[in-house]
Amino acid sequence: MTLLLAGCDGPLSTLAPAGPAAGDIALLWWGMLIGSAAITLLVGVLLALSFGPPRVRPVRYWTHGWGLGFSLAVLTTVLVAGLWIGERILPRDDGAVEVRAHAYQWGWRFAQPNAEGETVQTDGVLYIPAGRPVDVIVTAEDVIHAFWVPQLAGKVDAIPGRRNLLRIEADRPGTHDGLCAEFCGLGHATMRFELVAYGVDAPPDALADAPAAEEYADD
């Protein structure tokens, strides 16, 4: 078991969550994995049993019982769980910290508040306070990119002309890897960034030294 979980580790692993959204989704995954394994096994057993002598079951046993009843029951359960978790991790109006991620070919420019509450700009590193919900406003300069920090939450696309919103939160101070998930041309593979979650009482020096954020062209 430990070995299995160790295999799931990694700086970009969705299975090594370090925030509430990623944690919820990882839980959902493990649940669905167990269910799927059971269903695969079940179909395998039903297939294996078919190789015996002919057995007559009413047509509806298969089409209505298994086909409609069983599948609808399973699917409804999964759907409701998914919607429940989906609602839980949405951004909401609760005064969360707002930061901005601006994607371009091929890199990331971030704007985030420093200790004094001024918005400062950084390149390639996003600083957020740990233990607090943060809403990332995601925008794009040129083509479509996607903002993704797998250990914290799902991804959202950066689309020219639009501002998308993603809620992330880091449980503890630490560093997490992020990347561009939507194919964006020649530099796609290397369009990485770093996310630093800092303790609220210990804001990093880099933030204090960073220049004030400039306005972006599409504002």
């Binding site: 951004p91 707002e98 901005r100 704007a111 001024e118 918005t119 406003i137 639009r162 501002r163 998308n164 919103l165 004030a212 954020a213 400039e214 306005e215 972006y216 504002d219």
Partner: peptide
């Protein structure tokens, strides 16, 4: 996100 008038000061 579209409705809110988010502004990053210069």
């Amino acid at each position: 996100a579209l409705a809110v008038n988010f502004f990053i000061p210069v």
